[in-house]
Amino acid sequence: MIPSIKTSRPARIWPGAIQAIAAGALLAALVLLAACRTEAGAPSAGRMAVVTSNVILADFARQVGGDRVAVTSLIPPGVDLHSFQTTPQDSVTISRARVIITNGMGLDDFLLPVLDAAKQPGAVHVAASAGLENLQEEPAADAHATEDDHQAEAPHFWLDPLLAVHYVERIRDGLVQADPSGAATYQANADRYLQQLRDLDREIAQTLEQVPPAHRHLVTYHNAFGYFARRYGWQTSSFLEATGGDVTPTQISAVMGQLRAQGIPAVFAEPQFRSDVLEQAARDAGVPVGIVYTDVLDATVPTYIDLMRYNAKSLVQYLK
């Protein structure tokens, strides 16, 4: 490819131009060679390659797939999907996968063109949230003056462990479809993990009992906890709708009003999201800022179950 381009050299360029371009090409080549590292994501021998959009889905896939699968998350651990740009290596990873798992419902739809462009023809695509009833968002605050003509679609089903069960079932079915010979393993792994999720649900419900009913109100920057709150009978307020948008003055004043009126003792930030708006509001209201996780895993919360436990403990710690 490159040599054929160099022959189309224009006639009227000064001789030095060619030297400069050659020097540039040499530099580029050096960068390339330096960059020629071992490729990440090459499938381990014998394992089925699975690619997921985020680390939560990757955790589910590993729990179900066990040793039979090699799972890669496109959005790396600790990175917010909103600031994520794909690279050719991501597309290479996609092109090798036999199962592709996304959340759907708008959360990772921006990846779909990249997935479609790179995936192999026979790959199984699992949209984990497909079939779940969409939460009709309740007004985040009393003065919910913004719009809305469009039906809000909240994609954060997994924060309710019983809805995560649905995710795991769909992932199990996808793995079985792509790799029927492993059906028994996937079935067994899934059954075991689903039981853990049901136990987790009871455990969280118990933990949250420690929060006085008047304080069962989760204030976050971005409303990701609709399904969680519905499951455990909480209220939520946030500066941003679950579906995003931009912060409006109306929303800020509504949330501030709630904080003061109900005497909510803390607000919560997501670790990957620094929010000046939230921190300023907390300062104005004189309340601390706790941490809750949504779609990011790190050393503190290496798995989905750890994440859910951490959130419950964090809520108890700040709102008790």
Binding site: H82, S83, G106, L107, D109, F110, P155, G245
Partner: peptide, 13 residues
């Protein structure tokens, strides 16, 4: 775009 689902990621796109 702020009226659209999942504003930030789409805007980034």
């Amino acid at each position: 775009m702020s009226q659209v689902n999942n504003y930030t990621a789409d805007l980034f796109g």
